[in-house]
Amino acid sequence: MQINNPEWPLTLFYDGECPLCLREIRMFEKRNGQGRLELVDIAEPSVEPLPGLTRANMLDCLHAQFNDGQLVTGIDATYWSYKSVGLGWLVVPLRWSWARPFWQWAYRQFCRLRPALARIVPMPGSDAAATCDSDRCSPGKKHD
């Protein structure tokens, strides 16, 4: 998706019950000095999905929306999230048109495997393991 003049801030909708997601969100929070990224936990019951989408749609892949309403998903949401916090250089390959089919395929594979991967990654800030049932993740119990 070509966006020439993004209207910041970018609102990133993430799964706050996923340990993998939370690790990245914590990094974004630390680097968001310019306030160009707003973070919304779509797993929170009080958060409404974007118009025309269900919560399941939004948890299935990353969604982000610019201040002017432009929506980006998947690898585009990843690219613009990193760019918003000054790390666009890390994800420049996501913008290479010749490589986009590969990156889109890789992203879908990651989304499919995310629940299984999250089972082995502890929640940030805890020594607890995460458990995932089907496509949903939740923090495990703290060990004594």
Rank of each mutant, 00 (worst) to 15 (best):
L87C: 04
A64I: 13
P49C: 13
D144R: 06
R114T: 00
A99T: 02
D133N: 08
G74H: 01
A118P: 00
P49A: 10
S126F: 03
S126H: 06
S84I: 07
R36I: 11
C18P: 04
L50R: 02
A116K: 06
F28P: 09
E29N: 15
W96T: 00
P19V: 15
P122V: 14
Y82W: 08
D41M: 11
V47L: 00
W80S: 06
A130D: 08
D68R: 12
H63Y: 13
T73S: 04
G88S: 07
N5P: 00
F66Q: 09
I75H: 01
E24N: 10
R36T: 11
G52L: 03
P122R: 06
T131G: 08
E29W: 13
S126Q: 07
F13V: 09
K83M: 06
I42V: 13
T131C: 11
K83I: 09
R136V: 09
W8P: 00
C61T: 12
R136S: 05
Q70T: 07
S46Y: 00
C132R: 04
L62S: 10
L87I: 08
E17N: 14
F66C: 12
D144G: 05
V40T: 12
R119I: 03
A99Q: 02
K83Y: 11
T78A: 06
I3E: 06
G140H: 11
L87K: 06
W8S: 02
P122S: 11
Q109A: 03
C21W: 11
W96P: 00
P122A: 12
V40K: 06
K83D: 07
Y14F: 12
P93A: 01
S138C: 07
Q104R: 03
A106M: 03
D144F: 05
L37E: 13
L90H: 01
L62I: 14
W103I: 02
K142E: 14
G33E: 13
S46A: 09
A64N: 10
N5Y: 05
L12F: 05
P101R: 06
M123V: 13
L37M: 12
I75N: 04
R26V: 15
P45S: 08
D68P: 03
P139A: 15
S84M: 11
L39W: 04
R119N: 03
Q34H: 12
A77M: 07
P51Y: 08
